[in-house]
C-alpha cells in the first residue's frame, strides 16, 4: 500500500515535470507569434511579432533596424541605472507585517506580487499611458502624480527613479534617439522637446518652494511614458515593459530578502500566469484617465507607509 502511494507519487512527479517541459516548449513556440494586447488607441502599430522569415538563413538587418527592438532591450535591461532594485515596493514591510504567512513564503509572495501588480497598474500606469499619449503635458502629470502619492516612502522611490531616468536619457540615450530625422512619429519629437523642457524646469526650480506651488518633482511613471515615446516604442510595449520591470524589481527584492531562490524567481518571471496577470491589468487600465487612477489595494498603502517603522531595513521602500 505504502509502496503503491510512493510509486504513484513518483509518477505524478514525472508527469508534472514533463508537463512543465511541454509548457516551456509551447511557450517558446508561442513567444515567436506573440500578438499584441487589444488596443483601442488608433495611432499605435503593433510590433510584437517577429517576422516568420526569422528562420530563413539570410540575415535581415532591416527587421531589427525597423523595429523598436533595440530600444526595447535597452529599457528592459536590469543594468539600466535607475536604481530600481533599491526598492522592494512594500514587500519588505509586507513580510514584516505578515509573519504568520512565513510558513508558506511562496504562497504569501504570490499574493503580494499579484496585489503589487494590480496596484501599480491602477495608480501609475494611467500616468505612463498619458505621458506617452500626450508628452507635452508632462509637467501637469508630474504635479498630479505627486499629489496622488499618499506617502513619503513611495514618493521618494518614484522621484529617485524618475530623475535617474532623466539622467540616463540625457547622458546616454539622447544622442542616439533624438536625431530630428530619426523617427517619422512627430510625437517622438514632441516627447524629446518635452523632456528637455521638463529637465530644465526641474534644474532651475530646485530648492524654490512655495506653499501651494511645489515645482516639478520628476516622478517616474509619466517620464517613463515620455521617454519610451521618444525612443520609438509603441504604447503596448511601453506599458508592458513598465509593468514587467516592476515585477522584475519585486522578484529581485524577493530573492534578496530570502523569500525564494533565483531560479524560482526566474520561473515565476517566465510563467504564463504572470504574463496573463500583467496583460489583464494593462487591459483594465488601458483607457483609465489619470483623474480616475486610484489605489485598488488599500492595504498596500499601509504596508508601504509603515516601511519607515521597520527596525531593520535592507530596501528603501
Amino acid at each position: 500500500m505504502f509502496a503503491d502511494t510512493l510509486k504513484s507519487e513518483g509518477l505524478e512527479l514525472e508527469i508534472s515535470q514533463l508537463e512543465a517541459r511541454l509548457h516551456d516548449l509551447r511557450s517558446q513556440l508561442d513567444a515567436t507569434t506573440y500578438p499584441s494586447p487589444p488596443s483601442s488607441h488608433p495611432d499605435t502599430k503593433t510590433q510584437w511579432t517577429i517576422p516568420s522569415d526569422l528562420y530563413n538563413n539570410k540575415f535581415q538587418s532591416e527587421s531589427v533596424r525597423s523595429s523598436s527592438l533595440h530600444a526595447l532591450l535597452l529599457l528592459s535591461d536590469s543594468a539600466l541605472p535607475l536604481g530600481s532594485f533599491a526598492y522592494s515596493s512594500g514587500l519588505e514591510s509586507y513580510l514584516a507585517h505578515n509573519k504568520h504567512l512565513r510558513a508558506n513564503p511562496s504562497v504569501s509572495f504570490h499574493r503580494f506580487l499579484k496585489l503589487s501588480i494590480a496596484s501599480i497598474a491602477s495608480t501609475s500606469l494611467p500616468y505612463v499611458l498619458a505621458g506617452y499619449r500626450h508628452p507635452e503635458t508632462i509637467e501637469t502629470l508630474d504635479n498630479d502624480l505627486d499629489a496622488s502619492t499618499p506617502c513619503i516612502v513611495a514618493q521618494r522611490a518614484s522621484v529617485a527613479q524618475g530623475r535617474a531616468l532623466i539622467g540616463v536619457w540625457e547622458r546616454a540615450f539622447r544622442g542616439s534617439f533624438a536625431a530630428p530625422n530619426r523617427s517619422t512619429d512627430t510625437g517622438a519629437q514632441v516627447a524629446v522637446t518635452s523632456i528637455d523642457e521638463f529637465s530644465d524646469t526641474l534644474k532651475s526650480t530646485l530648492g524654490e518652494v512655495d506653499e501651494y506651488d511645489m515645482g516639478p518633482k520628476g516622478h517616474f511613471a509619466p517620464l517613463w511614458g515620455v521617454v519610451c515615446r521618444a525612443m520609438g516604442l509603441d504604447l503596448q510595449q511601453t506599458a508592458y515593459i513598465y509593468i514587467l520591470n516592476h515585477a522584475k524589481a519585486v522578484l529581485s527584492a524577493a530573492v534578496r530578502a530570502s523569500v525564494m531562490g533565483p531560479y524560482q524567481a526566474q520561473n515565476i518571471l517566465a510563467s504564463q500566469s504572470l504574463q496573463d496577470t500583467m496583460m489583464a491589468r494593462i487591459k483594465r487600465e488601458w483607457n483609465t484617465q489619470v483623474e480616475e487612477a486610484g489605489q485598488v489595494v488599500p492595504a498596500l498603502d499601509l504596508w508601504v507607509g509603515r516601511h519607515e517603522l521597520l527596525y531593520s531595513r535592507i530596501f528603501n521602500s
Binding site: 509551447r26 504570490h110 496573463d276
Partner: peptide, 29 residues
C-alpha cells in the same frame, strides 16, 4: 471594462491548449 473591447484576453490560442498547465504550474496560487 469596455463595451467595445470585450473579447477575452486570448493570447493566440495559447490559453486554450495550455490553460490546464498554467494551473498545474502554479499549484500554490
Amino acid at each position: 471594462i469596455d463595451a467595445d473591447d470585450d473579447e477575452e484576453l486570448d493570447i493566440g490560442g495559447m490559453s486554450g491548449s495550455n490553460s490546464h498547465l498554467v494551473h498545474a504550474d502554479t499549484p500554490s496560487q
